[in-house]
Write a protein that binds this DNA or RNA. Structure first.
Lengths: 194, 194
DNA sequence: CACATATTTCAGAAATTTCTGAAATTTCAG
DNA sequence: CTGAAATTTCAGAAATTTCTGAAATATGTG
């Protein structure tokens, strides 16, 4: 591995972290390297710096492209493929969430919906279905929230996140100002709309 | 594998999903089984239902305990250990986020802080450090947000999530009502407090 | 279209992870 | 304290994943 010390530390760490994320070491390292790199890199650059085989890099880049996590670029008068991560780190987060949702949540939701259609054949199955419905509703709430805030531009999103639960205070204030006194329970529950 | 069809479908799915989460198949299956089960199960129950070895179940349960994802219980006059997931699915989510943060985010933050202390030795290292600082600030914002909303009781948390970005509307309203006209830029930036 | 260069594919080697059965250890009732 | 039951540990087998080098394929230039 042929990297400046600061970069190497990060690349190695990310490689290890990858394992905890169901991503393999090399893919993690390639991504870390691209993320830190000022200039786009071609496959051969990556081979040299990480000291892994050319074919391994090829497969790793293919995987990262499947995840939409790297952009393919070209330099004039050079027909090699160059790769880079988006400049905007928020774009990376958005893609990551989007893709994980697509691969992990969506198939689970499909399965849950199917299973929830079935008629339970025993008391155990009935209870199991209730649990699955809880999970289904939870996922729906979370993905609904995400679908919603994901549409905000980054500045507003940051504003919202910075605020954190202080929003709560504002909500209370709003309630105090605008809700007709006496109609105490006007909230919606977890299993709503979408 | 000896399970009612509905349960089996879910357990198998969760086993596969586990792989994408850096958790092994058996651990995923054990968790799914416990999650759906009305009654706490002992290790032997799990062995029978999943058709895996006793030792594998033992290791899987140990791992789930290390994650704080299962509770150990006892029945009177029975000295076997019984296992169950929390009744409250929100408690499960909270634990999951907490533990993943502890294992994935915290070590990364430590490493980032260390690396950001170093003096960059080249223009490449300087750029790499800038990228790492972006990541550091992003994580800080996200974990700060989580630390904050995590303190809300579930009802308020659900309320907040249900609202999604509609909060934005309320914020705008608040701004219009309370901000002195003319002091246009009174927002805080992403790298604040904590 | 031929040729050099770049990239991908893929079979098998290497490494890692998962799983098992047997043995060791712990726990507790009598 | 003894012994049966429950649980854990662990070495190696089995399965899976990762990685490589060689071959195949694709791409663009002259």
């Amino acid at each position: 591995m042929n990297l400046p010390p600061l970069v190497q530390t990060f690349v190695l760490h990310f490689g290890e972290m990858g394992s905890r994320w169901g991503i393999n070491r090399t893919v993690g390292q390639i991504y870390a390297l691209l993320f830190l790199s000022k200039e786009p890199l071609n496959a051969e650059d990556i081979v040299e710096r990480l000291g892994v085989s050319r074919s391994n890099v090829s497969m790793g880049l293919k995987e990262l492209q499947a995840w939409n996590l790297v952009r393919l670029q070209h330099k004039p008068g050079d027909r090699r493929d160059y790769f880079a991560t988006p400049e905007d780190i928020w774009q990376i987060v958005r893609t990551l969430v989007e893709e994980r949702k697509k691969r992990e949540i969506d198939p689970t939701m499909t399965l849950l919906r199917e299973v929830l259609m079935q008629e339970p054949a025993s008391v155990d199955e009935r209870h199991a279905q209730e649990r699955m419905r809880e999970m289904h509703d939870l996922f729906e709430l979370l993905t609904g929230w995400y679908a919603d805030v994901q549409r905000l531009d980054t500045e507003r999103l940051v504003q919202l996140l910075t605020l954190g639960s202080k929003v709560q205070k504002i909500l209370e204030m709003k309630d105090r100002l605008f809700v007709v006194p006496g109609s105490k329970k006007s909230r919606r529950d977890a299993t709503k709309d979408k």
